[in-house]
Amino acid sequence: MNLSMLKPGEAGKITSISAIGPLKRRLMDMGVLVGEIVKVEKVAPLGDPIEVTIKNYNLSLRKKEAEGIEVEVVK
């Protein structure tokens, strides 16, 4: 299951990040790390991008980028 599949209000724990190179580094620099809890807040009105909270702040990313972030749902 990846981050783009979560619905608003659902949260997941990051299990792996398949992105490579600059994208991966950028995600990591923004605190998107394995083991981190990430909660989907909103989907943009046109369906993309999405807004998540991670490390106590709000981050938006496109679904394409969210697809590379594997999560397991946490209740």
Partner: peptide
């Protein structure tokens, strides 16, 4: 370019 943006 990627779209990874903080919503401050």
């Amino acid at each position: 370019p990627v779209f990874i943006m903080e919503l401050p």
